[in-house]
Computed example of a mutant assay.
Amino acid sequence: MVEKAKKDGPNVRFPPPLVYLGFILLGRILDTLLPLPSIVPQAEFEWIGVALIAIGIAIVIVSMGLFSKAGENPEPWTATEVIIARGPYRHSRNPMYLAMAMIMLGFAFWQDSAGTLFFLPFAVLAIDRFVIRAEEEYLARRFGKGFLDYQKKVRRWL
């Protein structure tokens, strides 16, 4: 029996949007279990949350469009042929993960969810440690100096 060779790619084992979604759900559970304080001073400020969600969604759409134009798959466990350094990738090496964090923050404000706000740093930390590190190790191996130069010019988050 002949095994297919595994295609090279980052060692990411789960979809990052599910990480954020999971922490949002944990936050909502925390909201129902504990009498947490309000994080939105007045209902009129909920629009800030909606705006953050909209901006986050727009960043994800633009970023995915850049992947599509480059013929790349945005799934973080797949191999890649190019470093995308245009659009939001000029300012952040991880604009989609940053956008997902913005969406989570926006959800916390929109829904006045102290539990979601509480879990936001844990979501960002999980993405940073278990997804971004694996991706960056892979990209450094795959592209060498090209990726290291990009890393020097563009910050990981902002």
Rank of each mutant, 00 (worst) to 15 (best):
P10E: 01
P10L: 00
P10C: 04
N11P: 02
N11V: 12
N11Q: 03
R13F: 14
F14Q: 08
F14Y: 09
P15L: 07
P16D: 04
P17H: 10
P17Y: 12
L18A: 10
L18C: 07
L18R: 03
V19G: 12
Y20N: 06
Y20S: 06
L21P: 05
G22I: 03
G22T: 02
G22A: 00
I24L: 13
I24V: 10
L25M: 14
L25V: 15
L25I: 15
L26S: 04
L26T: 00
L26K: 02
L26Y: 04
G27E: 14
R28V: 03
R28A: 05
R28H: 01
I29K: 07
I29A: 09
I29T: 04
I29Y: 09
L30M: 15
L30F: 14
T32Y: 13
T32N: 15
L33W: 14
L34E: 08
L34C: 13
P35G: 13
P35N: 14
P37S: 11
S38G: 09
S38N: 15
S38F: 10
I39T: 08
V40N: 06
Q42F: 06
E44K: 13
W47V: 15
I48C: 00
G49H: 07
G49W: 07
V50C: 04
V50D: 09
V50E: 14
A51L: 15
A51D: 03
A51K: 11
L52Q: 08
L52R: 10
L52C: 14
I53F: 11
A54I: 06
I55E: 00
I55P: 01
I55Q: 00
G56P: 02
G56M: 01
G56K: 01
I57P: 03
I57S: 00
I57N: 00
A58M: 05
A58F: 00
I59V: 01
I61G: 05
I61W: 08
V62P: 00
V62D: 03
M64Q: 13
